[in-house]
């Protein structure tokens, strides 16, 4: 039996909503089939007031074992580093995070806010928000770059806005079953099994990308969303088109561009007007090219693709 505690800092609860929709395995499966004892969760926990404080104090003191500490949302430091804008169970949440991370065998950050600060940490960052071990792309964050949990691992980052429910439950099962050694992390401490490949892999629009046929409106069934509508699928690391949402779809399959929410720079360009759902360009050439592609190669590839595009790329073939 692995004890799991889930707390929320500066959060919208989106990752909790996502987690509760998990199917493979489900949140219930974690308890009934995989021996995870959910000590407390903001939407599931029964304890309140003194009872909750007693539980947290028991974990901090070691009277009760904390195997997995899950954190959702940013660590709020405002005002002036005190963290009192986010009080919880009698003290600033940041103090609980510090103490609980010190005794946890594993620490898992769920969602962009807990991993890199997400939207709350955008300039001017009025809540002085940080991710657990990153602030945007900079390693460090609230716990510091040298932090290691009791297992010897750094914080395991499962980003996304929200994270896909099955990424969450599958990692929690792996950790709870003692298979954490199988989880190799990338340089941003994301499990490679989910975040090594690109969102574009598995996208049903790949043939339109290949022939450089652009979608110019949301929901348009024909065309690739990268060229005009700002899709970040070719440079975002996630399995959104392999592990589908609700087991059946993804943003790009539904005709909406990927917004790159599993990357620490999200939201890109600080949401400046004209940069959201629009491919950001300089003199007509995208500023952000698919990972590993040079500008000259991109232009030449585009010319060759256009020259050889079959007629069906201009038709709606999904009838």
């Amino acid at each position: 039996m692995a004890n799991l505690l889930w707390l929320q800092g500066g959060a919208c609860s989106g990752n909790t909503m996502s987690f509760l929709n998990a199917e493979s395995p489900s949140a219930c499966d974690l308890v009934t089939d995989f021996g995870i004892n959910i000590l407390w969760h903001p939407s599931l926990g029964m304890e309140l007031g003194d009872g909750l404080q007693e539980l947290l104090n028991d974990l901090v003191s070691g009277r009760k074992k904390l195997d997995i500490f899950v954190f959702e949302g940013t660590v709020i430091n405002a005002p002036d580093g005190t963290g009192t804008w986010n009080r919880f169970a009698g003290k600033p949440m940041k103090e609980w995070v510090q103490k609980l991370a010190a005794v946890a065998h594993y620490v898992v950050a769920i969602g962009d806010c807990a991993t890199w600060g997400g939207i709350p940490a955008m300039a001017p960052n009025p809540t002085e928000s940080q991710g657990l071990q990153f602030l945007k792309k900079a390693n460090g964050g609230f716990l510091g770059s040298s932090y290691r949990s009791g297992s010897g691992l750094p914080v395991i980052n499962i980003p996304g806005c929200p994270a896909h429910p099955d990424w969450v439950t599958q990692i929690l099962v792996a950790v709870a079953e003692g298979r954490a050694g199988d989880i190799t992390l990338d340089e941003l401490q994301r499990p490679k099994t989910f975040f090594q490949s690109f969102t574009q892999i598995g996208c049903t629009r790949n043939m339109f990308y290949a022939y450089k046929t652009s979608a110019t409106q949301f929901g348009q069934r024909r065309g690739c969303l990268f060229f005009d509508l700002g899709c970040r699928g070719p440079m975002t690391h996630s399995p959104c088109n392999r592990i589908l949402w609700n087991n059946q779809t993804s943003k790009t399959r539904a005709g909406m561009p990927c917004i790159g929410c599993t990357e620490p720079e999200f939201p890109f360009y600080d949401l400046a007007p004209g940069t959201v759902f629009k491919t950001s360009t300089f003199l007509g050439v995208p500023k952000d090219l698919p990972t590993g592609v040079e500008q000259m190669g991109y232009v030449k590839l585009g010319q060759a693709a256009k020259a050889n595009a079959p007629a069906w790329t201009e038709e709606d073939i999904f009838v």
Binding site: S214, T216, V299, G302, Q303, K306, A307, A309, E314
Partner: peptide
Amino acid sequence: EQQCFECMYYMVHRKYCELP
């Protein structure tokens, strides 16, 4: 040295600009 042909909005077969 730029022309419609390689522009993303250009439909090669219809010879048409698809910028909405």
